[in-house]
Design a binder for these strands. Structure first.
Lengths: 335, 335
DNA sequence: CTGAAAGCGCTTACAG
DNA sequence: CTGAAAGCGCTTACAG
């Protein structure tokens, strides 16, 4: 096959200079309509494909956004990634996605490798650990970067942070369980000492304190299988528990599966609520109450702020919390 | 901040020519060890970042692999995407991912846009529809492309196809249900007339025919909510059904949720088996039997064949089926 | 509104 | 094993 046509070929075919073709490609207004049409037609005829590498080399803007995620298999992150990618595509940006599987070394190598492609921007849900190395990597990269969901202390406010307002979310959820008449409410799941765990737990703790209820914190993995494994324990060891706020929906859905096996009856003897409101909440038995983070909205916000930073140099605020809302279903209301 | 260092800066700092630096960057063997070390050190000191756009422009190989998926929110595809991305990263390739949400027009625009970045290869799980347009798009792109999971007729054998051996899988599953003593086995879910549906159904149909059992095909969405909605129907309208082969795990998991609500009792009155063996199968109640497609292996195979094509010009076979295996759990065995 | 020239940071032959 | 020159396909000023 012959080599690909370039703007020079298009220019020749259209009978204009290559500058004109370049202007048409970039959608400039300054080209006469009739000229533009002739150029477009020539591009179609020749099967011209715009070469962004060349454009990037000259203009230092690749139109590539990196998305680096600590756990892409978690449906919560999948929904985020899918939404983000669609928004960015609408704005003419391609998303380069990478999963780091909670491995900070892999994460740093990944970021380094993505930067070689000349990222226009980076959205990072960081793995924990190796914080100095990642700070160095990001500094070297010198690319507009936003952290989402998790915030690394070491990055301070140099790397803006966007996340759902989990604190309000767990306050709403805890309050809701109390309103349903729960007297003994447990917090289930989440690795201890992680900022995300502390954050979701803190409002739970203070809401209980307000009512002089003793807290019961059962930390653990953030997976379905952990939630499932805790159903028998709740029945045997903690049989007075009548309400559970879970670290996330996966833990809660696992707990629901475990309870349909061993009891207690969810919605009746035990009221359960998750966090994230992933799609599966609607199709569990019973349907799972949750704190919705409005992931599409969160993705849109992140995309919007990043592009504003890239295109207009307007750097986002150091911390942005996006709104959450309570979604009540049978698992917590009983009806 | 100063502009980024280039190989020229590195060359100056290391006291060699830029050709030498270029050789070091590309890991050539022909450079003396001591020289290589000096160059590496200079790169570190300067914070040098390799500019792939420049390299791509000259050498026409970007190291970028496109992954275009019809439904990235489905955990099956997520696992595939995550595995594939990890394998490709190990080989020094970055993955540009895009979700087309089953929209063929969006898909074609997406492919066109990815091609502007000079893809080295493309892995496509196509949306149905607009087949001529996509054929034209791929022709214009002239990039090594592999279809996975779904095969578009119009592309014929020009675009190699890799997928799990679903036919063997559904034969195994149907046979297993019979072995468990099921007398009336239904096939649940999957949009009618789609090749994927026909494929998973065909072995079910012929296995029943062998035993002179009447088939019962209940097509529908491939979602949890469809599976869930069918539980009451199975109880009321099709109460003689004692075994169900589901189009995929999502349908099966939905059915399980529906059954714990309305009966029948899964594993006892009704034996259920899914296809794909996504992670959630292990944590449902009861745990869901399924046909494992060994997604990591499938992803590895796809990555391997694509890279062989890209790097050595060895084009994969027109059709490659990867092995499947039966995973028996309580939903079909009762214990 | 359009054209001619220079240059982005690499790789690719080709000499030495 | 290393160096000097040309060129990949664009964009960016700058003239006209």
């Amino acid at each position: 096959m012959a080599r690909r046509p370039t703007i020079l070929d298009v220019a020749k075919a259209a009978g204009v200079s290559k500058s004109t073709v370049s202007l048409v490609v970039r959608g400039s207004e300054t080209v006469k309509d009739s000229t533009r049409e002739i150029v477009r037609e020539a591009m179609r005829d020749l099967g011209y494909v715009y070469n962004r590498s060349a454009a990037t080399l000259r203009s230092a803007s690749s139109g590539l956004i990196g998305l680096v995620i600590n756990d892409l298999r978690n449906p919560f992150f999948t929904e985020f990634a899918a939404s983000l990618q669609m928004y960015l595509a609408e704005q003419g940006y391609a998303t380069v996605i990478a999963n780091t599987d909670e491995d900070p070394e892999l994460q740093n190598r990944t970021i380094a490798s993505l930067c070689e492609h000349g990222l226009s921007g980076l959205i990072l849900s960081p793995a924990y650990g190796q914080e100095d190395a990642i700070a160095a990597e990001l500094h070297k990269a010198a690319v507009p970067t936003i952290q989402v969901f998790r915030r690394l202390e070491v990055l301070g406010s140099r790397v803006p942070f966007i996340a759902p307002d989990y604190e309000t979310g767990s306050a709403l959820a805890t309050r809701h369980l109390m309103d349903q008449g729960c007297k003994r409410i447990a917090f289930l799941g989440g690795l201890p000492e992680r900022p995300v765990t502390r954050e979701r737990m803190s409002a739970y703790l203070s809401a209980l304190k307000d009512e002089n209820i003793e807290p019961l914190v059962l930390t653990g993995e953030t997976s379905r299988s952990f939630g499932r494994s805790m159903a028998p324990k709740l029945r045997q060891t903690y049989s007075d528990v009548d309400g559970v706020l879970c670290f996330n929906d996966l833990v809660a859905l696992g707990l629901l599966a475990g309870c349909s096996e061993h009891g207690p009856r969810v919605g009746k003897d035990l009221r359960v609520i998750g966090i994230d409101d992933i799609e599966d909440c609607q199709d569990s038995h019973p349907p799972l109450s949750s704190v919705s983070c409005d992931i599409p909205n969160l993705a849109h916000t992140a995309a919007h702020h990043l592009l504003e930073w890239i295109q207009e140099g307007r750097r986002p605020d150091a911390v942005l919390r996006t709104p959450v809302s309570l979604v009540c279903r049978t698992s917590s209301t009983g009806r």
